[in-house]
Nucleic acid binder design. Structure first.
Lengths: 208, 208
DNA sequence: TTGTAATGACACCGTTTCGTATCATTCTAT
DNA sequence: ATAGAATGATACGAAACGGTGTCATTACAA
């Protein structure tokens, strides 16, 4: 058997992977690579449309490795979603912002191709994976609404705190439904800012 | 709809149907039955999860008939969605209502299990069937927003007409995201009315 | 009347896909 | 040092599934 001649053309050093048990480092690196590439594959083809061979090839591992890591296809999907949901909820570099910029950032985030695609995936599989739907909602929407409530409270007093949830609905808006349906592209930064401003003004939270 | 109630004939199974070419009546009856049962099957298992044998058995026809009617699985799915989308857009027995009752009816409609499930299906398959996504949006959301705009204009004047879209977003609300994710059940009539009232007040459209 | 289209029942085919098996190989754990 | 676990490469099995073929049978159309 001709050793390794097929991989000599690849430029990435990570593809010159030897056989045998990997080092602990390699093992960790590989796990994250599997999850990130799995996301891109699932986003492209959906859960049912993605095959294990496709997922394995994208991560440059064999199916065997996928099974030792995640048990089966459903396990890989669940791991991918929970991992990404955790990343979303940790995405909180926006503590010291004004309500306007916070709203703008939330819009850019929830309308991004990545998050819209993830929502599509989880909505599509919400029957098979109800737990993932709950996880995604808790670490996404619920977290965003809590952030908005916090800012509104400090800037406007506790009486206006109940505006956080309707405000979030307006930040999504009809635009987000078209995003989920694949009709609209992601908004530009300028569009996000304008949208945020309009939503805040509608609820009497805008700057005067 | 016209659910052929040969339920009691379960004992003498579906083979009570004769072979050979059906009458024109039977043909029409069968087409609607196929579409309605296809909806329930797709809602239960999703597009990829539903098999042709399952769909055929649910409609009490053979795969052969499905192919003569719709060509292939995708054709059946498309026919089912467009048929239902048309039904939604014709669901306009609410012309002479006040804004409050119109909003309440829209809430009950868009939060219904049927429409939420249809949205889930189309969102899940929006890559494979982009045209269906556009059709559903045009005959659903766009139509609802137009109705709201019409009522707002006649009751409040053309200046407030731009409130129709944000109002619709509030009528969906965070609740609808949880509906899509399968977290919440459909709202009761009382909840729908309360929700409508709260949304209208937020935008200054409520009664005083 | 006569040909044709549609249907049920059922078998069948080819492909896809999940999940395992095998074997050599390399690292980890003890 | 030695056993065991993890991996690459590859092939394979078993099942599911989309779609078609066949034949008898019935209604429609010309």
């Amino acid at each position: 058997m001709d050793r390794h001649s097929s991989v000599s053309a690849r430029s990435s050093p990570s593809s010159l992977r030897k056989r045998g048990r990997p080092t602990a480092d390699e093992r960790r690196r590989r796990e994250t690579e599997i999850l990130t590439t799995a996301l891109s594959v699932f986003l492209k083809s959906g859960y049912g449309g993605s095959t294990l061979d496709e997922l394995a090839a994208a991560a440059r591992v064999t199916k065997r490795t996928l099974y030792t890591f995640f048990g089966d296809k459903a396990g890989l999907f669940a791991a991918m979603v929970t991992d990404l949901a955790a990343a979303v909820s940790l995405d909180a570099a926006y503590d010291s912002d004004t309500l306007e910029t916070l709203a703008t950032r939330i819009i850019s985030r929830v309308h991004s191709d990545e998050l819209v695609g993830l929502h599509r995936l989880v909505i599509a599989e919400s029957t098979r994976f109800p737990e993932l739907a709950r996880i995604l909602h808790s670490s996404g929407d619920a977290r965003h609404i809590a952030r908005l409530a916090e800012h509104i409270r400090t800037e406007r007093g506790p009486a206006s705190e109940s505006l956080a949830e309707p405000l979030f609905s307006l930040l999504l808006g009809e635009k987000h439904r078209r995003r989920l349906l694949g009709i609209d592209p992601a908004p530009t930064a300028a569009q996000a800012a304008a949208h945020a401003d309009a939503a805040l003004r509608l609820l009497g939270l805008g700057r005067h």
